[in-house]
Design a protein around this nucleic acid. Sequence first.
DNA 1: GTTGAGCGTT
Length: 293
Amino acid sequence: MSELYIRVAEDENEEPMEIPSEDDGTVLLSSVAAQFPGACGLRYRNPESQCMRGVRLVEGVLHAPESDWGNLVYVVNYPKDNKRKMEEIDAASAVKVKRGYQKTSDLIVLGLPWKTTEQDLKEYFTTFGEVIMVQIKRDANTGNSKGFGFVRFTEYETQVKVISQRHMIDGRWCDCKLPNSKAFPDEPMRSRKIFVGRCTEDMTPDELRQYFMQYGEVTDVFIPKPFRAFAFVTFADDQVAQALCGEDLIIKGVSVHISNAEPKHNNINQLFRTLPGGSASLAAMFYRSQYHV
DNA sequence: GTTGAGCGTT
């Protein structure tokens, strides 16, 4: 048997990947699944009939249609394909529904005494309702408080109440507001990739994958090295990715912010951001001006 | 070791 690899793709139009065959010319389903997680078989287009044909599968072993696999590109089968898609749509709409009715978001707490700790904050705000995250911003070197922090409640009603009044915390009046820096609003493209901001250094790719799996199939996790406090997560389904954009999610007790991943080649974004007063929206305006003149 | 309007190490 001369064929050492067969060509397999997710879709007829996708770029195929070479999958190793066994000595006897068969291909193990596990070899396919190693590259295409969840795969349960293969099919191919019969050159004569132009119809799709299934590849024979016996006890986890895929058998060549003829004496060998030929030069065809094989396409991966997934179990209950429709069901899987439905689940992802459900996950996406569940997130959307959550947004539709009063989604909570992090609140910035301004004016905190230098001495106030996260525990103090939690104790204080718990008198209003269940708290799911508190954070005090500190100097990276000294560990001193910067005098502000963030809090997140379970219930939207609690959030409304907390915003509506001033707070006496450890002897100082403090204000709670919706933060400005949700600053990545405009991003028209529908990507399967999300930007995960405010990651902490202890978050591993595996943990991120485990976490985001609840929303849909994760196809990639990328964490830049050295540590840059953000990550990219790619889903199989763009609907899942899009539904998450704008969310504040809590991973390992840390509030991360989800936004659209901007295309890699857009260094203009970087440029605009490093400019005084620069922002993503400035960059977006620049794009539009390019397209519309 | 100090301080008191702000915006979370994209």
